[in-house]
Each structure stands twice: as C-alpha cells, then as structure tokens.
Amino acid sequence: ELREAFRLYDKEGNGYISTDVMREILAELDETLSSEDLDAMIDEIDADGSGTVDFEEFMGVMT
C-alpha cells in the first residue's frame, strides 16, 4: 500500500520524489504545520541531503 502511494508521487518512475513534493504531502497531511516545521521535517527525512526522498525514506515517514 505504501509503495502504491509512493508511485503516485513518483510520476516519472525514477525511484524518488523531490523534497518539494514531500513537503506538499506533509502539508496536506497536517495543515497546521508551519513552514519552519516543514523545513525541519524535510531535513530529517532527507538525511543524506540529496534533495530527494527515496522509498525507504518515504516509508520511514509514513510508518
């Protein structure tokens, strides 16, 4: 189920989504998050600083 959700956002099928897209997902899930909260969450999610979120990083957030 998580893989299907990931595929919805990984429109190009390249195995990752951008941190911008991940930020939008988080904002949709919790509309009360401030910009600073979102920045901090993205920094934590994208631990390797690649600017992308792969499936493993995505799973870590969603579980």
Score class of each variant (00 low, 15 high):
residue 36 E to I: 08
residue 36 E to V: 09
residue 46 D to W: 03
residue 26 L to G: 01
residue 43 D to T: 11
residue 61 V to A: 15
residue 56 E to T: 10
residue 36 E to H: 09
residue 17 I to F: 04
residue 28 E to R: 15
residue 55 F to H: 02
residue 20 D to C: 06
residue 14 N to M: 11
residue 2 L to G: 03
residue 9 Y to T: 02
residue 62 M to F: 12
residue 45 I to P: 01
residue 28 E to W: 09
residue 13 G to V: 02
residue 7 R to M: 14
residue 63 T to Q: 12
residue 27 A to R: 14
residue 52 T to R: 10
residue 34 S to Y: 03
residue 27 A to K: 14
residue 7 R to D: 15
residue 47 A to C: 10
residue 6 F to R: 08
residue 12 E to L: 08
residue 20 D to A: 13
residue 59 M to E: 09
residue 32 T to C: 08
residue 18 S to F: 06
residue 57 E to C: 09
residue 18 S to R: 07
residue 4 E to N: 06
residue 27 A to H: 12
residue 12 E to I: 04
residue 22 M to Y: 02
residue 32 T to L: 08
residue 5 A to M: 15
residue 25 I to H: 01
residue 7 R to L: 15
residue 46 D to I: 04
residue 17 I to V: 07
residue 42 I to R: 00
residue 43 D to A: 14
residue 20 D to S: 13
residue 53 V to L: 08
residue 42 I to V: 07
residue 37 D to T: 10
residue 29 L to W: 14
residue 17 I to R: 00
residue 32 T to Y: 08
residue 52 T to H: 09
residue 17 I to M: 03
residue 32 T to M: 09
residue 45 I to H: 03
residue 36 E to M: 09
residue 21 V to I: 13
residue 50 S to T: 11
residue 27 A to I: 11
residue 43 D to N: 14
residue 54 D to T: 14
residue 52 T to E: 05
residue 38 L to Y: 02
residue 34 S to C: 04
residue 48 D to W: 05
residue 37 D to A: 11
residue 35 S to D: 12
residue 7 R to Q: 15
residue 5 A to D: 12
residue 14 N to I: 09
residue 6 F to S: 08
residue 11 K to C: 12
residue 57 E to Q: 15
residue 26 L to H: 00
residue 44 E to W: 14
residue 4 E to F: 05
residue 39 D to C: 05
residue 36 E to P: 05
residue 34 S to D: 06
residue 20 D to I: 11
residue 5 A to T: 13
residue 58 F to V: 03
residue 54 D to N: 13
residue 5 A to Q: 14
residue 56 E to C: 09
residue 35 S to N: 11
residue 1 E to G: 13
residue 61 V to Y: 15
residue 31 E to Y: 11
residue 23 R to K: 11
residue 2 L to T: 02
residue 21 V to S: 11
residue 18 S to H: 08
residue 14 N to E: 04
residue 12 E to W: 06
residue 13 G to D: 08
residue 36 E to G: 09
residue 18 S to N: 06
residue 2 L to C: 15
residue 25 I to K: 01
residue 48 D to A: 08
residue 57 E to V: 12
residue 18 S to V: 04
residue 19 T to G: 03
residue 46 D to A: 04
residue 22 M to E: 00
residue 11 K to I: 12
residue 24 E to A: 13
residue 23 R to N: 00
residue 34 S to A: 07
residue 21 V to T: 11
residue 38 L to E: 00
residue 25 I to R: 02
residue 21 V to C: 12
residue 4 E to G: 03
residue 61 V to E: 02
residue 44 E to F: 14
residue 16 Y to C: 02
residue 62 M to P: 02
residue 55 F to Q: 03
residue 31 E to Q: 14
residue 62 M to E: 02
residue 48 D to S: 07
residue 24 E to G: 13
residue 57 E to N: 12
residue 49 G to T: 05
residue 43 D to E: 12
residue 48 D to Q: 06
residue 24 E to P: 01
residue 43 D to G: 11
residue 26 L to F: 05
residue 1 E to P: 10
residue 6 F to M: 08
residue 41 M to E: 02
residue 38 L to A: 02
residue 42 I to K: 01
residue 60 G to N: 13
residue 54 D to Q: 09
residue 24 E to W: 10
residue 50 S to D: 07
residue 9 Y to W: 12
residue 18 S to E: 04
residue 51 G to K: 06
residue 6 F to L: 07
residue 6 F to T: 09
residue 19 T to D: 02
residue 4 E to K: 06
residue 59 M to Q: 10
residue 35 S to Y: 08
residue 16 Y to W: 14
residue 33 L to C: 04
residue 43 D to L: 14
residue 3 R to V: 10
residue 34 S to N: 09
residue 19 T to W: 05
residue 38 L to I: 12
residue 2 L to Q: 03
residue 42 I to E: 01
residue 9 Y to L: 15
residue 59 M to L: 12
residue 14 N to S: 07
residue 25 I to Q: 00
residue 34 S to T: 12
residue 11 K to W: 10
residue 25 I to F: 07
residue 13 G to K: 04
residue 56 E to Q: 11
residue 16 Y to V: 05
residue 52 T to V: 07
residue 47 A to E: 08
residue 27 A to L: 13
residue 61 V to W: 15
residue 58 F to M: 02
residue 23 R to L: 03
residue 40 A to Y: 10
residue 47 A to R: 13
residue 5 A to F: 15
residue 52 T to Y: 07
residue 54 D to S: 15
residue 14 N to G: 03
residue 63 T to P: 06
residue 23 R to Q: 01
residue 14 N to A: 07
residue 18 S to G: 09
residue 45 I to M: 11
residue 27 A to T: 10
residue 29 L to T: 06
residue 21 V to M: 13
residue 4 E to I: 07
residue 31 E to V: 12
residue 61 V to G: 10
residue 22 M to G: 00
residue 12 E to C: 07
residue 23 R to D: 00
residue 33 L to N: 02
residue 7 R to F: 13
residue 15 G to Q: 02
residue 8 L to V: 14
residue 45 I to N: 01
residue 48 D to Y: 06
residue 33 L to G: 01
residue 62 M to Y: 07
residue 3 R to G: 10
residue 29 L to F: 11
residue 20 D to N: 11
residue 24 E to K: 15
residue 39 D to F: 06
residue 60 G to E: 12
residue 39 D to V: 06
residue 35 S to E: 15
residue 61 V to P: 02
residue 20 D to F: 07
residue 37 D to R: 10
residue 41 M to D: 01
residue 11 K to H: 09
residue 32 T to Q: 09
residue 27 A to P: 01
residue 23 R to V: 02
residue 25 I to T: 01
residue 50 S to G: 05
residue 6 F to G: 06
residue 54 D to E: 07
residue 26 L to D: 00
residue 53 V to H: 01
residue 58 F to I: 03
residue 43 D to W: 12
residue 51 G to V: 02
residue 32 T to P: 02
residue 50 S to H: 05
residue 41 M to W: 15
residue 35 S to A: 12
residue 54 D to L: 06
residue 40 A to E: 09
residue 15 G to D: 03
residue 27 A to N: 06
residue 24 E to H: 13
residue 21 V to G: 04
